[in-house]
């Protein structure tokens, strides 16, 4: 029940109490009363929970995590390549 959904803000109401968000193609309204006024702007990524924006998603931190994952995958690929070469060098059937 505590799952929340990442969404992108596409409109903020004039009185800043509501916004419209896009959740992978689905548009819906979300309540902004749990956020400080002016804190959420069009283009921001937010977490949605039971009709409310519960917080913003920090773009820099998200990108940093994704970058870390990429580096880990690259390092592993590299290791696998190296291992394949060593295995190949040691292959007795050659």
């Amino acid at each position: 029940m505590c799952l929340s959904i990442p969404s992108k803000v596409i409109k903020v109401s004039e009185d800043q109490t509501m916004c419209t968000v896009d959740t992978l193609g689905v548009q819906r309204d979300a309540n902004l009363m749990m956020m400080e006024e002016g804190d959420v702007q069009v283009g921001d990524y937010v977490l949605l929970h039971i009709g409310f924006v519960m917080n913003k998603i920090d773009e820099k931190e998200a990108l940093a995590s994704i970058e870390t994952y990429k580096e880990i995958l690259e390092a592993m690929d590299e290791e696998e390549r190296r291992r394949a070469i060593i295995d190949d060098d040691n292959c007795e059937k050659r």
């Binding site: 990442p6 992108k8 773009e59 998200a62 990108l63 994704i66 970058e67």
Partner: peptide, 12 residues
């Protein structure tokens, strides 16, 4: 670094 897209937050 490329900019974040919504689908990154799901797929990645």
């Amino acid at each position: 670094m490329s900019d974040l897209e919504l689908k990154n937050l799901y797929d990645d």
